[in-house]
C-alpha cells in the first residue's frame, strides 16, 4: 500500500484486545477508503478490539454494533484518539 500514517499517530493496529479508540482520520484513499467508510469507520466512530485471530492478523473490531475483521495493514491507516480499555468503561 502506498499510503502512510504519520509515525506519531496512534492507529487501530496499536490497540490491544478489550481496548477502544475513537477514529480521528483515515489515511487510505480510493476504494479502500470508501469501503472502510461504508462499513462505518469514519471520524468519531468508537472502535473496540474484540479478538485477534490465532496467527495475529487479522483482528476483529466491534464497529457500530457489527464485528469486522481488518488486516493490520488496513488498521495501520486509521488513526485514533481517546484510547480506553474495557475495565475503565
Amino acid at each position: 500500500m502506498t499510503y502512510n500514517t504519520p509515525h506519531s499517530q496512534t492507529t487501530l493496529a496499536d490497540l490491544q484486545p478489550g481496548q477502544s479508540g475513537v477514529v480521528t482520520q483515515l489515511y487510505s484513499q480510493g476504494p479502500e477508503r470508501r469501503r472502510m467508510m461504508d462499513l462505518g469507520i469514519i471520524p468519531g466512530t468508537t472502535v473496540t478490539v474484540e479478538m485477534t485471530s490465532p496467527l495475529g492478523d487479522p483482528v476483529a473490531y466491534r464497529v457500530r454494533g457489527a464485528l469486522l475483521a481488518l488486516r493490520q495493514d488496513q488498521a495501520r491507516l486509521v488513526s485514533i484518539s481517546d484510547v480506553s480499555s474495557e475495565a475503565e468503561k
Binding site: 476504494p31 487479522p58 464485528l67 469486522l68 488496513q74
Partner: peptide, 12 residues
C-alpha cells in the same frame, strides 16, 4: 497488482 479491498464481516 495490489490485492483488492479486504473486508470480512463476522456475522452474529
Amino acid at each position: 497488482g495490489e490485492s483488492s479491498v479486504f473486508s470480512l464481516e463476522l456475522p452474529p
